[in-house]
Design a protein around this nucleic acid. Structure first.
Length: 399
DNA sequence: TATAATGATTGTTC
DNA sequence: GAACAATCATTATA
């Protein structure tokens, strides 16, 4: 009990002292406070003016007892008692004794050099929040990153801008909640620190409190509060991660390409059936025509090649259909050379492809290229000798 | 509602 | 890095 109630003497509202355990001091106090010279003026030092040294010790004991029990009293009583103690003529003597004890026991120096490095977890969370655009200046970094990731994989759907704005608005919500909470936290931390500092300053009237000690106490408070900050940052990071994963998952919500886009792609595919590997330029051209990305074009051709190869029979009808179309386009091209392809919308020439002349049914009686599954037997030169470009491919075939 | 079709993703190979 | 192959997940259709 003595240890828990050192010489604070500041009433019920007191916090405990910062490790200034009065206990060893209490014991030494009596011995320290008994030099002969003190006894000689014991009449002044005794509470009731007695000259008996024994009585003096009892008086000091009474004072200490009052200090110990001060926290059990009401605020008003305690304040009154505190004032009385502060004005007590014994106070300077007690204060100097406490200073002496403190110096002897090295309390003021204990644990003062514990400069902890910054919490690595906090650093990590800070970096993450900064990267996601939650902390630091608002610039939508995370959203941009997520969107660019989605774009690079060619997964942006036509309404990706909607998703993007949705993502951004949700991120900004998280951001604002985070900043509000952080502000609250900082305010609470500042308020509490100020309160404790005031308390310590108040206490410094009755016991020795060095500025170093106050600093140390502030550091302790900040450390305690930083765990709350870490929690806040952690939950914010989690929220961002969940949002992000949901946004990225949304890429899988595919939309079928438009009929026209599929038509354009199919026309290219079947008219280059002997070598359905569009070059980068051709892919870009197709992408532009279809209103999709180059990656989507690549995906489409990848899927198409595999699915065609796996089940040529199933695609026969489709092949014939497009053969007819391209043949018609070719004939039109003969009649009117300024309308080079069957769709009439593309800038690359399908009629120029030799593939389509490989056997358009009903045109020249030759076997259709689209019926020539057996010819390439579902396997193209492919990776072993990919065509340098469909332009060259086309020019090679047409030449 | 089951199934087919289809765009996207992932791991592997060259 | 491009293509392949398998697979996933969503959409369309019977």
């Amino acid at each position: 009990m003595l240890q828990q109630q050192p010489l604070t003497g500041n009433g019920p509202s007191n916090g405990r002292g910062p490790g200034v355990s009065g206990h060893p001091g209490m014991h030494s106090l009596n011995s320290v406070h008994q030099p002969p010279q003190h006894r000689s003026d014991g009449a002044e030092s005794g509470l009731d003016g007695t000259e008996n040294g024994h009585e003096t010790r009892r008086d000091i004991g009474d004072i200490l007892q009052q200090i110990m029990t001060i926290t059990d009293q009401s605020l008003d009583e305690a304040q009154a008692k505190k004032h009385a103690l502060n004005c007590h003529r014994m106070k300077p003597a007690l204060f100097s004794v406490l200073c002496e004890i403190k110096e002897k026991t090295g309390l003021s120096m204990r644990n003062t050099q514990e400069e902890e490095p910054q919490d690595p977890q906090l650093v990590r969370l800070d970096n993450m929040l900064l990267a996601e655009g939650v902390a630091g200046p608002e610039k939508g970094g995370g959203a941009a990153a997520a969107v660019s990731a989605a774009t690079s994989s060619g997964g942006m759907s036509p309404d990706s801008s909607l998703e993007h704005s949705d993502y951004k608005s949700k991120l900004s919500q998280i951001r604002s909640i985070y900043h509000t909470e952080l502000e609250k936290y900082e305010q609470a931390c500042t308020e509490f620190t100020t309160h404790v500092m005031n308390l310590l300053r108040e206490q410094s009237r009755t016991r020795p409190v060095t500025p170093r000690e106050i600093e140390r106490m502030v550091a302790i408070i900040h450390r305690k509060f930083s765990s709350i900050q870490t929690q806040l940052k952690q939950s914010t990071c989690e929220a961002v991660m969940i949002l992000r994963s949901r946004f990225l998952d949304a890429r899988r919500k595919r939309r079928n390409f438009s009929k026209q886009a599929t038509e354009v792609l199919n026309e290219y595919f079947y008219s280059h059936l002997s070598n359905p590997y569009p070059s980068e330029e051709a892919k870009e051209e197709l992408a532009k025509q279809c209103g999709i990305t180059v990656s989507q074009v690549s995906n489409w051709f990848g899927n198409k090649r595999i699915r065609y190869k796996k089940n040529i029979g199933k695609f026969q009808e489709e092949a014939n259909l497009y053969a007819m179309k391209t043949a018609l386009g070719a004939r039109q091209g003969e009649d009117s050379p300024h309308t080079p392809n069957s769709t009439g919308s593309g800038s690359f020439s399908l009629s120029g492809s030799a593939d389509m002349f490989l056997g358009v049914p009903g045109v020249n009686g030759e076997q259709s290229a689209y019926q020539m599954g057996g010819q390439h037997n579902g396997s193209w030169p492919g990776r072993s000798s990919p065509p340098p470009s469909p332009h060259s491919d086309r020019s090679e075939n047409s030449d």
